[in-house]
């Protein structure tokens, strides 16, 4: 099955400045929630604008669901940069305008309002009076009109308060379950992306640094262990065949990879070791991000 989005050697320059997007090749699998990461100015929005046809590439190609971009543009919904709404119209009227442009029946408005959990009384109010969270939800509702197969959301949690961020996270997680939908979520909020993304692409100065499923990128789960006698505990674990990370900072708990916490605990306790700390941890997206950016620099 072809990917939802494939770009090949995509390049975009603005004037004589270095390329905003430089020879970029990304692949977004179908039904993935693809976290498109990068610092401000990394080229995320430019890439998404190229995918949406708002900008023309200087080189490279874009394929959506195996077809050239122009042939499949009707299968995309998007929210780029800011929730662009007509403030003098109500939420429902905003959706009605988009619905008419897409040639959809009126019942489609109620369907998308339900998905984003925007109640009908709120939809009857002018969009100019909405909070930022409501504006984001209304803009996502508009992007969902016509059940697009690829939804592109550029910084959907930007500027939201903690409640708004949580609501947005819940919504994003629910979207792929609603239909055969692939999500591309561009953001620099790494902790948020980590909570929703299945795949990650990391962009730096217009170039792709890494692209992989998030689980693969974060590696295996490791177990942090602290005992009264760390050296003895480490020998016991190594002798038993566990993989112990030894080059740890001073006073940091020992790290055991590829093992279940219960097996480690029962072995150490059986050998008379006194456990003071046992927890699991994985490499965070933030660590991965800074590691990759550091290598690129």
């Amino acid at each position: 099955m072809s990917a939802a989005l494939e770009t090949s050697a995509l390049t975009k320059r603005f004037g004589k400045a270095p390329a905003a997007v430089d020879n970029l090749s990304i692949t977004v699998p179908r039904r993935a929630i693809y976290g498109f990461l990068g610092a401000n100015g990394a080229g995320k929005t430019t890439t998404l604008k190229l995918v949406l046809g708002l900008l023309r590439p200087d080189a490279g190609s874009i394929r959506l669901f195996g077809k050239p971009r122009a042939e499949a543009s009707a299968r995309i919904g998007s929210l780029i940069e800011t929730p662009s709404l007509y403030d003098h119209l109500t939420g429902r009227e905003n959706l009605d305008i988009a619905r008419r442009l897409l040639g959809l029946p009126p019942r489609e408005i109620d369907r998308v309002l339900e998905i984003v959990d925007l109640d009908r009384s709120a939809a009857r109010r002018r969009a100019g009076g909405y909070s930022l969270g409501m504006r984001q939800r209304l803009a996502i509702a508009r992007a969902l009109l016509g059940s697009p197969q690829l939804l592109i959301l550029d910084e959907p949690a930007n500027g939201l308060d903690p409640d708004g961020i949580r609501d947005m996270r819940t919504l994003l997680r629910r979207l792929p379950e609603i239909g055969d939908m692939t999500l591309i979520v561009s953001s620099h909020l790494l902790s948020e992306v980590e909570l929703v993304a299945t795949h990650v692409g990391l962009l730096h100065r217009g170039r792709l640094l890494v692209e992989a499923p998030l689980d693969q990128l974060r590696g295996d789960e490791a177990v942090e262990v602290a005992t009264a006698d760390p050296a003895q505990s480490a020998r016991i674990l190594i002798d038993a065949g566990f993989s112990v990370v030894t080059n740890r900072p001073a006073n940091a708990p020992m790290l055991v990879t590829g093992a279940q916490p219960a097996a480690i605990a029962s072995l150490l306790v059986a050998r008379g070791q006194s456990l003071s700390h046992l927890s699991t941890r994985r490499q965070s997206l933030e660590t991965i991000y800074h590691d990759q950016i550091g290598r690129a620099a």
């Binding site: 708002l54 009707a74 998007s78 800011t82 662009s84 007509y86 897409l102 508009r142």
Partner: peptide
Amino acid sequence: QIEHGPRTWNYLLTLPG
């Protein structure tokens, strides 16, 4: 300004048509 103000071009110009 109906379009420029809220930057609705980013939406309108992505629609098929």
